[in-house]
C-alpha cells in the first residue's frame, strides 16, 4: 500500500494521536480506577498493581486475572485465560499488518504493545481516512496517551479508590460505547458492511455468556466472514 505524501509532521501526528484518543480516555479512566481499587481489595501490592497496568496494559484481562489471583490459580491458567480474553487483538494485528509492515522492529514492538481496543478504534479510522507518511507517530501518540492514563488511573484507584466511592456513580463508562457507536456509523457505509455489523451484533448477544469475553472474538470472526462472503457474492452477482 502506498503512502500519501503531504505536509504532515511527526510531532503534529503524535499530538493528534493523543488528542483523538481523549474521548476514549474518559471511558478508560473509571475502569482503570476501579481496577486499582479492586487490586487493593484483593491484597495486591501497589507495585504489583502499577506493574500489571504498566507492563500488561490489557483492561479486561487484568480484571479477569485479579479474580484468578484471589482464587490462588496457577500461572498457566492465568496465562491461558489472558490469551482467550485477548484473542480479538489477533484481528487488530492482521488488519494493521499492511500499514505497519515497512516499519522497523522497534517501532512494530512498541506499537504492538499498545494495541488495545481504544487505540485500534482511533488508529483504524486514521489509517482508513487520513493515512500519511507519519501515521505511525499518530499511532504512537494514541498508545502513549492511553497508556499513561491507564497506568496513572490504576495507581490513583489503588491509593484513593476507597475514599471516592461516588466515582462509580458518575456514569463515565458510557463514554466508550458512545464513541465506538459513532465510529461504527461513520465507518459503515456499504450494504455489505451494514449486514456484517448487524450480524455481529446478533452473534454478540447470543455468545455474550461465553467465558472470558471469548464471545467478542467469535462474533467478530463471524461478522468479518459474513462481510467477506457478502462482498464476494455481490461482486459475482454484478458480473
Amino acid at each position: 500500500m502506498e503512502c500519501i505524501t503531504s505536509s504532515f509532521s511527526p510531532i503534529g501526528e503524535l499530538v493528534k494521536g493523543g488528542a483523538f484518543t481523549l474521548p476514549l480516555a474518559i471511558g478508560a479512566f473509571p475502569f482503570a480506577f476501579i481496577f486499582g481499587a479492586l487490586a487493593l481489595q484483593n491484597e495486591l501490592s501497589m507495585m504489583a498493581t502499577f506493574s500489571m497496568s504498566f507492563f500488561v496494559f490489557a483492561g479486561a484481562a487484568q480484571f479477569v486475572a485479579l479474580g484468578l489471583i484471589s482464587l490462588g490459580s496457577e500461572l498457566w491458567l492465568i496465562a491461558l485465560t489472558t490469551l482467550v480474553t485477548n484473542l480479538r487483538h489477533l484481528i487488530y494485528s492482521v488488519w494493521l499488518q499492511p500499514y505497519t509492515k515497512h516499519l522497523s522492529l522497534r517501532w512494530k514492538s512498541i506499537l504492538s504493545f499498545g494495541l488495545v481496543d481504544e487505540v485500534f478504534a482511533i488508529v483504524s479510522q486514521h489509517y482508513t481516512e487520513n493515512r500519511n507518511e507519519f501515521s505511525h507517530f499518530f499511532f504512537l501518540g494514541s498508545v502513549l496517551f492511553l497508556w499513561c492514563i491507564w497506568t496513572v488511573s490504576s495507581v490513583a484507584g489503588y491509593i484513593v479508590g476507597d475514599q471516592f466511592p461516588q466515582i462509580y456513580e458518575l456514569g463515565l463508562e458510557v463514554a466508550m460505547p458512545i464513541t465506538f457507536a459513532c465510529m461504527v456509523v461513520v465507518m459503515t457505509q456499504s450494504k455489505t458492511s451494514i449486514l456484517a455489523v448487524f450480524v455481529t451484533g446478533i452473534i454478540m448477544l447470543i455468545t455474550k455468556e461465553l467465558p472470558n469475553q471469548s464471545g467478542l472474538f467469535v462474533a467478530s470472526v463471524v461478522g468479518v466472514a459474513i462481510g467477506a462472503f457478502a462482498e464476494k457474492f455481490l461482486k459475482e452477482d454484478e458480473k
Binding site: 488488519w95 482508513t128 465510529m183 461504527v184 465507518m187 467478530s220 468479518v224
Partner: peptide, 8 residues
C-alpha cells in the same frame, strides 16, 4: 470490515 465489526 474488521474495525466496524469488532467495535460493534
Amino acid at each position: 470490515f474488521a474495525p466496524q465489526v469488532v467495535l460493534t
